[in-house]
Design a binder for these strands. Structure first.
Length: 404
RNA sequence: GGUGGGAUACCCGAGUGGCCAAAGGGGGCGGACUGUAAUUCCGCUGGCUCUGCCUACGAAGGUUCGAAUCCUUCUCCCACCA
C-alpha cells in the first residue's frame, strides 16, 4: 500500500476541512501500515434530479482518490432521504419527491457516477433499504439523540427561524437519517460539501451511541456554478452536467467568470496541484492569457467527461459559432413539408427555434433572425419554399435549423 | 385552541373599482462590444389567424356599465400567543 505520508498528501489536497484532523491521520496511517483494514469512505447523494454535475464531481473525485489508494468507496443513494429533503443551505423547504421519481433518477445517476468512480473497491447501497423499514420506536430513539437547540444552531435553520420562514419538522429528521446511514454502513470517513458539515458530524454522534468507532468528516469546497455566485445546482440553472454534450459543456465553461478559473482547475480537472499553482501565478502576473487559459480549462473538462477528441471538436465548434459567427456543420434539419409560402413567424415556431409566434416576432424585431447569415427583420415576411430549401435559419447565436 | 397575516406572470414582489397583460428587482432571451455563452451598455420578456381578439392576479359564485382590487363560500399556506 502507498505510504501514509503520501496518502495523506493526496487525500488532504483541496479539502476544506477534516474533522478531527489527528484522528483522520491516525486512521490513514494505520491502514497504510496494514494495522487495520482499508478505510470505508462514505458519500451519499440524494437523487433529487437525474443529473450529476461538476459540483457533485468535486466530492466524487475525492472519493475516487480514496479508491485509488485501496480504500473502499461506499456510495449511498438517498432513495429514502430524497423523499425527506435535505435542508442544507436552503432558505425554504425543499419540495419532496415521490418514490417513483426518486427511483427513476437513481438509475441515471449511477450510470453517471461510473464516469468518475472506479468500479472497485466500490459498494453501492440505497438507504431506503434500512430507513424505510424503521418503525416509530426506532424513529423516537433516533430523535431523542438530538435537541431542538442543537438543530437551531445550524446556520440555515437559524436564518429561517429568525426570518419566520417555515421549517418542517421532517427537516429536523434529515441529519439524523443521514447519520443513521453512517451507522448502517459503518463508515470510517464521510465526504461532503462544506454545507454538509452539520449532517456529517451527526453521523459521529450516532455511531458513537451505537458503539462504533465514529467516522471522520472530510469536506470539500462548494463549487460555484456558471453564474459565478451561487453554489452549483440544477435548480438554480447554473450547473454544468457531467452528461452535457461536449459543445454544451465547452460553452458553459467558457461562460464562467474569469476569477473562478483557478478554482475549477483545482477542483474539477486532473492537473496536479503544482501546475494549478503555476496557472494561478501566470494569470495573476499577466503572463497567461485569460481567454486561452479558459479554453484550456474547457478542453480539460470536456476531455475528462467525454474524450480528448470531443474536446478538440468542441473547441473548433465554439470557434465557428461564436468567434467566426458562422454556422456549425452539425445543424439539425427541419422539414419544410408542403407549406408554401412560409410565413416567417410560423416558420420560426414550427422549426422550434422560437417557443411561440409572439417570441418569433420579438426576435425578428430585435434583428436576431438570420437566413444564411442575412438579417430578416420583416415580421410579415412570407417566403416561398424554393427560397428556403437548403438554407440555414438562425435565431441569435445559438439556435440553428437547416431547412430541408 | 385563539389571534393575525397571506395566496399576483419563471421566481421574489408592488398594486385596494376603470389610466392593469399588471410597477420594481432577479432570472431568461436578444443586440452592441469582447479573448469568451465573461464583464459592461442597450433592449425584449402571456398567447393568437396581431391596429384586434383570447387567456391570466388560489378556486367557485356574486355586486357593478366595468373587478387583481368590493361581497359570499371554499381550498391551501405562514407566523404569533397558549
Amino acid at each position: 500500500m502507498t505510504p501514509a505520508a503520501q496518502q495523506l498528501r493526496i487525500l488532504l489536497d483541496g479539502t476544506e476541512q477534516v474533522l478531527p484532523h489527528d484522528e483522520f491521520e491516525r486512521k490513514v496511517t494505520a491502514a497504510a501500515r496494514g494495522e487495520r483494514p482499508p478505510l470505508r469512505a462514505k458519500f451519499g447523494v440524494d437523487p433529487t434530479s437525474a443529473d450529476l454535475h461538476l459540483g457533485h464531481a468535486v466530492v466524487l473525485r475525492k472519493l475516487r482518490a480514496f479508491q485509488r489508494l485501496g480504500h473502499t468507496a461506499v456510495l449511498i443513494i438517498g432513495g429514502f432521504t430524497a423523499q425527506v429533503g435535505d435542508p442544507s443551505g436552503r432558505s425554504a423547504t425543499r419540495p419532496r419527491l415521490t418514490r417513483a421519481e426518486v427511483d427513476a433518477n437513481a438509475a441515471t445517476y449511477l450510470a453517471q457516477v461510473r464516469k468518475i468512480l472506479l468500479d472497485d473497491p466500490l459498494e453501492v447501497t440505497n438507504n431506503a433499504d434500512w430507513l424505510e423499514p424503521m418503525g416509530m420506536a426506532d424513529v423516537l430513539r433516533l430523535t431523542a439523540r438530538m435537541t431542538v437547540a442543537q438543530m437551531l444552531e445550524r446556520a440555515d435553520f437559524a436564518a429561517r427561524y429568525e426570518q419566520r420562514r417555515p421549517i418542517a419538522v421532517s427537516e429536523f429528521l434529515y441529519p439524523l437519517l443521514q447519520g443513521e446511514d453512517s451507522v448502517a454502513v459503518r463508515s470510517d470517513v464521510e465526504l461532503g460539501g462544506t454545507d454538509q458539515t452539520f449532517n456529517l458530524l451527526v453521523g459521529r454522534d450516532l455511531q458513537a451511541a451505537a458503539g462504533q468507532d465514529p467516522q471522520c468528516v472530510l469536506t470539500m469546497p462548494l463549487l460555484e456554478g456558471t453564474d459565478g455566485s451561487a453554489k452549483m445546482s440544477k435548480t438554480y440553472g447554473n450547473a454544468i452536467g457531467v452528461d452535457d454534450a461536449p459543445a454544451e459543456m465547452f460553452g458553459k465553461v467558457m461562460s464562467l467568470p474569469d476569477p473562478l478559473m483557478v478554482k475549477y482547475f483545482r477542483l474539477v480537472t486532473d492537473l496536479p496541484p503544482e501546475q494549478v499553482d503555476a496557472i494561478a501565478a501566470g494569470l495573476a502576473d499577466g503572463s497567461l492569457h485569460p481567454g486561452q487559459t479558459k479554453r484550456r480549462l474547457a478542453r480539460e473538462i470536456v476531455a475528462l467527461y467525454a474524450s480528448p477528441e470531443a474536446a478538440t471538436a468542441a473547441e473548433a465548434r465554439f470557434d465557428t459559432q461564436f468567434v467566426d459567427r458562422s454556422v456549425p456543420d452539425d445543424v439539425a434539419v427541419f422539414d419544410l413539408g408542403d407549406t408554401d409560402p412560409w410565413f416567417l413567424p410560423s416558420l420560426l415556431r414550427a422549426s422550434r427555434l422560437c417557443a411561440s409566434g409572439a417570441e418569433a416576432r420579438r426576435m425578428i424585431a430585435q434583428r436576431a433572425v438570420r437566413l444564411d447569415g442575412k438579417v430578416l427583420d420583416d415580421e410579415e415576411l412570407a417566403l416561398p419554399r424554393a427560397a428556403l430549401r437548403g438554407r440555414v435559419l438562425q435565431v441569435g447565436r445559438r439556435r440553428f435549423a437547416r431547412l430541408g
